Amino acid sequence: MNTSYFFGYGSLVNERTHAYEDLHHATLKGWRRTWRHTRLRPVAFLTAMPDPHSSIEGIIAHVPNNDWAALDEREFAYDRVSATSSITHAKSAAVDIAVYQVPKDTGLAPDIRHPIWLSYLDVVIQGYLRHFGEAGVSRFFDTTSGWDAPILNDRAAPNYPRTQQLSAAETALVDAHLHSVGAKVIL
């Protein structure tokens, strides 16, 4: 049996939100990142959807002892699917890699009752900035669809349970990219 890894493309890129180790940059080919919500969560969140013309930059990280229980609980609105053959990475050893995906038949477009939490997006962008720099943040916005979704500015009282403190520069970077994609931030 190969060692198990997950591919993170959202908040899992920010290692401050988890204790998984052996992180490596990776690319998931043939997939696109988008915003969705389900009946299982009252908020929009990122998911990966098959798209033969796209790829997603992210990280892979080791799941010790192939024990997926804690991560499956964290990612409870997703299905964990094998993506080993679609992911390029620098690990020399053979590894099995899974990606979390909202089931296609349960994912709905975000709306005013199911907005994106800015506190969640901040955590995602902080992770991308640390791993991939400002160019990686730009690629994140370019390779993510659904920016027409309402974004709830909850920075003063974060709803996201794994929220992180952003520097003034990180906050300004998020805000500048939201402006560039024409996102509608609501209070």
Rank of each mutant, 00 (worst) to 15 (best):
N2Y: 10
T3I: 11
Y5R: 03
F6H: 10
G10T: 01
L12C: 05
T17H: 01
E21L: 10
H24T: 14
H25T: 14
A26S: 09
A26K: 07
R36I: 03
T38G: 12
R39T: 08
R39H: 11
A44T: 00
D51T: 04
D51P: 03
P52E: 08
P52C: 03
S54C: 12
I56F: 02
I56Q: 00
E57G: 03
I59A: 11
A61E: 01
H62Y: 03
D67R: 15
L71M: 10
L71W: 09
D72G: 03
E75C: 09
E75K: 08
A77T: 14
D79H: 09
S82W: 07
S82L: 14
T84N: 05
S86Q: 12
S86R: 11
H89E: 13
H89N: 13
A90M: 07
A94N: 13
A94Q: 14
D96L: 02
A98Q: 07
Y100D: 00
Q101K: 12
V102N: 02
D111M: 07
R113M: 08
H114R: 09
P115G: 04
L118T: 10
Y120D: 04
L121S: 06
Q126R: 15
L129Y: 12
H131I: 10
G133Y: 15
A135R: 10
V137T: 04
V137S: 00
D142E: 15
W147V: 00
P150M: 02
I151S: 04
A156R: 15
A157K: 08
N159W: 06
P161G: 06
R162H: 08
A168V: 14
A169G: 03
A172W: 01
V174K: 09
G182L: 02
G182K: 01
K184L: 09
K184F: 05
L187E: 14
